[in-house]
Amino acid sequence: MILTLALLAGLVLAWLLIGVAEKFRLGLRFTQALLYVPFKLAYRIGDSRIRIARKAQAPVIYVISHQSRFEPALMLSLLPEDTLHILDEVSARSPWLEPWRELGRTIAFNAEHVFVSRRLVRVLKGKGRLAVYLPDAVEPDVKTFRLFRAVTRIAMQADAKIVPIFVGGARGLPVSLTPADKAPRHWFPQLSISVLEPMTIAELVARNPDQASNTNALFDRVAEARLFGTNLDRGLFLAMRDAADRVGASHTIIEDVISGALSYRKLFIGARVLGRRFEAVTAPGEAVGVMLPNANGVVLSLTGLLSSGRVAAMINYTAGPASVTAAVRSAVIRT
């Protein structure tokens, strides 16, 4: 009994000490830090860029990609305590989120209705902060795009800056909002928080005057946060390997009407067989011409070249002899 109490006391003390460290490291309130500690330890969260969000001058709108049920708890733990969080109805009623909702100000909204309101504009004009949780969509449907349009209008009326936030890895959590067949679940994936610098809608549009609309500028900025949270130094071959780890090596990756379907496992086996051959007849970093029809073979060749450290120079066989010859000469293709 005494040993059990001592262990519990040790755990509580460790929790408090880590909470104090997080409080001073990120500038959180002590209660915020305490409720953030379980996430930090369980998911080894890379959170250095959250300081950008905390230091953003009001009025500001934090646009969070809502991939799982954890984002509201994380943001309530990490964003300034005066932020008004606009939660979906499930997050606003969820019993397990109650301790985190007590950390800040929250209101619920019905995603079926566009939520532009004078109240939100007044909050921002009074040097306030909003946190909105928008669906994480590569290509938004009509309902999702209306939400982006509503946020754009609020930001423009209040002249508020936009701070996109993306939690990398949250898509594969057990509480993910993405169907399991599209995002295989993992209990404790490593998470990283991607935050971009604050910018107004006018500044976003000024970067690309050819934008179709102000809403498109906001959507593209949110997509940038998703891209920023990706390790672009990994390369295509390693990214494919990571995808195989997530969905399973037996998952089908390519298919054509002649060769049939290939799983990740078969793709990598074929790629390495070809890769060894490429290594034997070409130099590292050399451009190798690939002129094949759109079938499994072209993907195997491309992956094999990438795995052997060669550059795949894709040649369009429909371009005609003169264009193909000119391309080969320009790229100094010997193989």
Rank of each mutant, 00 (worst) to 15 (best):
D136A: 13
G10L: 04
Y36M: 00
D256M: 00
L13H: 14
E203T: 03
L16K: 14
K266I: 06
E81Y: 07
A217I: 02
N216E: 15
A244F: 08
H251A: 04
Q157W: 11
A271T: 00
F278V: 00
T215K: 01
S307Y: 07
G235E: 11
S94Q: 11
G248M: 01
R241M: 13
V281S: 03
F268Q: 03
A58K: 05
P179W: 12
A212V: 12
Q211N: 14
A322I: 09
A33H: 02
S330D: 10
Q67W: 14
A312G: 11
R93E: 10
V138D: 13
A56L: 00
L274M: 10
V90D: 10
T230W: 15
L79Y: 02
T178L: 02
F166A: 06
V114D: 12
R277P: 09
P38W: 08
L232V: 02
S213P: 10
I86R: 07
P59R: 01
F228L: 04
T252H: 02
I50V: 04
A21M: 06
G126R: 13
Q157F: 07
A280S: 13
R246G: 03
F145Q: 09
A239W: 14
V299T: 15
Q57C: 06
I18A: 13
P135F: 02
G275M: 00
M156I: 05
I107L: 09
L147F: 11
N296T: 11
T144V: 06
A21T: 09
T230R: 14
L292Y: 01
W187T: 08
R146V: 05
G270R: 05
R153C: 01
F109K: 03
D256F: 02
V123Y: 12
P38Q: 06
I201Q: 07
K182L: 11
E255D: 15
A111N: 07
K161E: 15
G270P: 08
A327N: 12
P189C: 05
V121F: 07
P198A: 09
A111P: 13
A180N: 14
T325R: 13
L7V: 03
K40W: 15
N316I: 04
A223H: 10
V90I: 03
R101W: 14
S94V: 03
T144D: 09
R329Y: 04
M240Y: 12
A53M: 01
Y62W: 00
V37N: 10
D245P: 12
F24A: 04
G235A: 08
A244G: 06
A56M: 01
P184D: 09
K127C: 01
A249G: 12
G126D: 14
R44C: 09
H85P: 12
R25T: 06
P135H: 05
A326I: 00
T106H: 14
E279A: 14
L87S: 03
V163C: 02
D159F: 07
E203G: 07
P59V: 00
V138G: 11
T31G: 01
S263Y: 01
G229N: 05
V273I: 09
A108R: 09
R118Q: 11
V205F: 12
